[in-house]
């Protein structure tokens, strides 16, 4: 009985149920949801927000918030792209990933230093650094949509398989970048589940003072966390431009909100200490299905932004309400 109650007090089953109902609804209205090419298209749209959500979720679990990761992703990929283009690089795409991750690491380290060592408030710091990075990209590098080196173009063309929809004569390629997402998810799973560092992220989100007294090095954990977000953002940047086959500096603008909303929707507690990768992935999946099917479920495109806002408010409201009621029921238990 208790286990069932606990199961349904979590967000994941509800998000999963919403996904199933929504997809059945779309299938009933259009008949095109459960087709190979639609599912592959969804998976394709899923890769970039999915990669970004991993770091975002960990930051929220640690009790912070980061709104600069999209600016980091854009600047890291843009500098990498420019350097590789100017040097006429012909080699492997791995170097591009490594460079972009490196630039991401530097930017993440700046966030980490300000947050972990100077203990500045995370929102204000990342608002500031986000503006700084975006301004640098458009000001110092006068960024505009640009070509990408051949290695990245080739990487973008790698496909795992092709799904063909014979009814509509459409076909969609499953990009190889999905493997990067799967790999990163696996590493994040290992980190959060089996390492002291990962447990530390949960611990400082639950109660920072208690975590410090329990022997966690709070500063080091936070520093590591923001560096990790930077590295993931850098990797995401290259994945994105390889799939688009050109480097658009404004491609990430506004995506941070969708990702944060999805993470919170997936049951990550906004005040820290709770959250799962499964929930995050489900949250992103729900957001992507919603965004790709707004017209199918009868919402005109002009209203999509209002819709994102409503989802953020409802999603955070439901989780916040759940926390409040858990507190209340614990208090009631103590009384009896």
């Amino acid at each position: 009985m208790i286990t069932a109650r606990r199961f349904f007090a979590r967000s994941e089953p509800w998000v999963l149920a919403a996904i199933v109902i929504l997809s059945l609804l779309i299938q009933a209205r259009s008949g095109q949801f459960f087709t190979g090419n639609n599912l592959v298209d969804l998976a394709r749209a899923f890769i970039v927000p999915g990669l970004l959500s991993i770091g975002c979720m960990m930051v929220i679990v640690s009790g912070g918030i980061d709104v600069s990761f999209t600016a980091v992703a854009a600047l890291a990929m843009y500098i990498t792209d420019k350097i590789l283009l100017q040097s006429g690089y012909e080699g492997n795409v791995i170097l591009a990933y490594a460079m972009s991750a490196g630039f991401g690491l530097l930017m993440g380290a700046l966030n980490g230093f300000l947050i972990a060592f100077l203990r500045l408030p995370t929102l204000v710091v990342t608002l500031g650094t986000g503006s700084l990075f975006t301004g640098l990209m458009f000001g110092a590098f006068s960024a505009s949509a640009s070509d990408v080196p051949p290695a990245i173009v080739a990487h973008g063309k790698e496909t795992l398989f092709t799904a063909v929809n014979s009814d509509l004569g459409l076909s969609s390629n499953m990009p190889s970048q999905i493997l990067i997402l799967v790999g990163m998810l696996f590493l994040a799973f290992l980190l959060l589940r089996y390492t002291m560092l990962g447990r530390g992220i949960y611990a400082i989100g639950g109660d920072e003072a208690a975590a410090e007294r329990a022997g966690f090095n709070v500063r080091a954990i936070k520093m590591f966390l923001y560096c990790l977000v930077g590295v993931l953002a850098g990797i995401t940047g290259i994945s994105r431009i390889s799939m688009m086959a050109y480097a658009d500096p404004s491609t990430f603008q506004g995506m941070e909100l969708t990702v944060i909303a999805a993470v919170v929707l997936g049951g990550t507690r906004v005040t820290g200490g709770l959250g799962t990768l499964t929930g995050t992935i489900l949250g992103i999946a729900l957001m992507m299905i919603l965004a790709n099917s707004l017209i199918l479920i009868g919402i005109p495109t002009y209203w999509s932004r209002a819709f994102t806002g409503a989802v953020i408010i409802i999603g955070t409201g439901v989780t916040a309400h759940q926390i409040a009621s858990t507190h209340r029921s614990q208090r009631d238990l103590k009384k009896t």
Partner: peptide, 25 residues
Amino acid sequence: FEIPAILATLGTQQLYTGIAIGITN
């Protein structure tokens, strides 16, 4: 509803801007 102010107002910013876009196309 005890939503942290950051998230609540990030949401309202989207919502209000979104409504404004919606009614003016």
